[in-house]
Design a protein around this nucleic acid. Sequence first.
DNA 1: TGCAAATATATGTACATACATTTAATGTAC
DNA 2: GTACATTAAATGTATGTACATATATTTGCA
Lengths: 149, 149
Amino acid sequence: MKIEEEIKQSAFKSEYHKAFINMLYTASWLELEQSNLFKPFGITLPQYNVLRILRGQHPKPATVSMLIERMLDKTSNASRIVDKLEVKELVTRKQCPNDRRTVDVLITDKGLALLKELDVLDDNNKTGIHNLTEEETIELNRILDKVRQ
Amino acid sequence: MKIEEEIKQSAFKSEYHKAFINMLYTASWLELEQSNLFKPFGITLPQYNVLRILRGQHPKPATVSMLIERMLDKTSNASRIVDKLEVKELVTRKQCPNDRRTVDVLITDKGLALLKELDVLDDNNKTGIHNLTEEETIELNRILDKVRQ
DNA sequence: TGCAAATATATGTACATACATTTAATGTAC
DNA sequence: GTACATTAAATGTATGTACATATATTTGCA
């Protein structure tokens, strides 16, 4: 559906203004789609993203600062997201012996198993971005990188 | 900067997966840019969006349900955003006489004056989306609409 | 050595999101 | 016209974001 209909706005000041609104709206649309997919597993998107970073490091641990550096949203609060994952026993956290300021965060077997389930879900999800052709997807990536130049 | 470098991830599963992450990352980047622009005025993005909808209606009032319908994020809590705006005297709220379940929300002169200031700011902002050519912007809008098909 | 600066993480607070529940008013079926 | 369903908005709670501050540890340098 065209963005004008979605938010019931008849006209935008410019194509640029429309693209700005369209970006925010579509991203939030994609997030909602993804979070609904994950809801039955009791995991939120930020928690999922942290788990994925941890799997990328596994079996090495990650520190909280590494998580912040790699998270999509740099200003979010990695400590508290790890809190939630720890309660669900998807990660462990223990003080690093070399530098006792830092904390080693490790994904557990339970965490790895959960990610495996979610991978399948993700692979089977053919909505959203998958409406595009391969060429359109490449073009979208190029344009987005240019926006952040 | 390419998305791989931004989030320090060397490879994506597919161009589609990369586009998904790129969308969320770039939208959050744009939101941060916009919210920094507005910070000196003590207004958040959702509050700004509600004010804009109210200006679109002015001098007619809007109801809370109309705000929800037109907001970018449909599941957010319009009541509480209106609370914040009311405290700052940017909107007024009073029970509608015809249907006493609904509430008439109206933008004040102070609210209109604030929006006028922000418009100027917005017009002078030539970063982000404005890095694109007009053709790229049109193509971006087309692709985003297709994602939400 | 000793002490200030830097670093890593955690915590506090205001705001927003997501979703369930509550309250009040209205609509509708019988 | 009363009873039940529906609607509009507000409220409660858990999570997350944004940002400031606190605490502990390490580093660096006089």
